[in-house]
Design a protein around this nucleic acid. Structure first.
Lengths: 215, 215
DNA sequence: ACACTCATGTTACCGCTAGTAACAAGTAGT
DNA sequence: ACTACTTGTTACTAGCGGTAACATGAGTGT
């Protein structure tokens, strides 16, 4: 008979319970979307709300715990792609593909991680106002795609390519700007130059480090 | 005495009223953040809730109308930068700069447009769980920045440059993936190739169209 | 055997939100 | 005067996140 302290047993049990609760929450969120209520999650787990709050503090805590799980899983895959022993260009493609496969095969997880505030079911309520108010980033992407398509010669199939680039470039600007705005690590002009450099192909032009396996 | 139909007067008045309401809503949202309540907005406008609902349908409608205003303003500036008669590289930089100036000088507008669901005031409530669960995109950006910094020789100041690139590339992948996932205009492999091409400097390598002013 | 501790679970509530129904009042047209 | 319409109100609903107070049951010290 093994002597296990009561404390250890309890902590183990608590961790197991927490895992069960997270799995129930996951089921509900994947079924009902990110707007799922704490009541619904508690019901799915077969318990009531205060228990959820004891385990996770508040809704944000539960959602963070959920997000960490999925994010860790995705990051593992990406790290593997980033470390695969192939030429640099192939590695870039492998990483992009890993990400895209992930969002393609589990779009609900993707929606939860990326757009945790969206709610669906407009339930046939057509509003006249703001119908054309697609979120800013989409509009920007489409506008830029148009400009690119009309001014740059991209060869056959160039329109779709321009759209991919338009959205991609806007996303780059957005994400880099968001990071820069929070941390302000250097003046604005420097970020402008860095991003323009990136678009201008410095990634391809940069040399490998001598000590690394090469990016 | 000019004969104006009552209908026209009323519509004009309704439009003016709507504009006033939008301005009041704007003040509240810029002051209290995107989580501002309809009650607060109505109070700021000196009226009560049902009037807001008659004008905008629901909260989403009001917020869409607000977003359209700001988005249009930003888009005008960007279009001007995109059309300025300077070399292509300078135009890219001007456009990036215009966007960054906008988010730098009016971060509250930016927050409203980009993160309309965030709420602040954590009010000193420290949660143990998930403290390290920075949203997925930030984690990805930081991870990629690390990989780039450690494997690519970027010269002096390379670490900050790597971070800008890391976040930028992740944002590109995210935005392009988001668009592609909604529209599925071509197979995944094609998007992978397009994005890798973009990172590989095809934007700089592409020739100008013969009929346009050059991108 | 008994009290103590402590985690697990409940019911019943609070304050707040988005959204709505019902009603009052002013104003123009007939 | 009667109708039609807009503007405004008060008073309500249902549901949300979150919490206080209480019940219960298992292991531990005396």
């Amino acid at each position: 008979m093994v002597e296990t302290s009561q404390r250890e047993d309890q902590q183990r049990a608590a961790r197991a319970r927490r895992k069960e609760l997270l799995e129930a929450a996951d089921r509900v969120v994947m079924r009902d979307g990110p707007g799922a209520s704490m009541n619904a999650i508690a019901a799915e787990a077969g318990i009531t709300k205060p228990i959820l709050y004891r385990h996770f503090g508040d809704k944000g805590g539960l959602y963070r715990a959920l997000a960490v799980r999925h994010t860790d899983a995705l990051l593992d895959g990406l790290r593997a792609a980033l470390d695969s022993p192939v030429p640099r260009r192939d590695r870039v493609e492998a990483t992009l593909d890993t990400y895209l496969v992930a969002i393609e095969t589990r779009p609900q997880v993707y929606r939860f991680l990326m757009h945790p505030a969206d709610e669906e079911q407009p339930s046939e309520q057509g509003f006249d106002v703001g119908r054309h108010s697609a979120p800013l980033l989409r509009r920007l992407g489409e506008e830029l795609a148009e400009v690119i398509a009309e001014r740059v010669d991209l060869g056959p199939g160039g329109e779709q390519l321009a759209r991919a680039w338009g959205h991609g470039i806007v996303g780059m600007m957005h994400a880099a700007g968001d990071w820069w705005l929070r941390e302000r690590p250097f003046p604005r002009a420097e970020l402008v130059r860095h991003l323009a450099d990136l678009l201008w192909g410095r990634l391809a032009a940069a040399g490998d480090r001598l000590d690394g396996p090469g990016f």
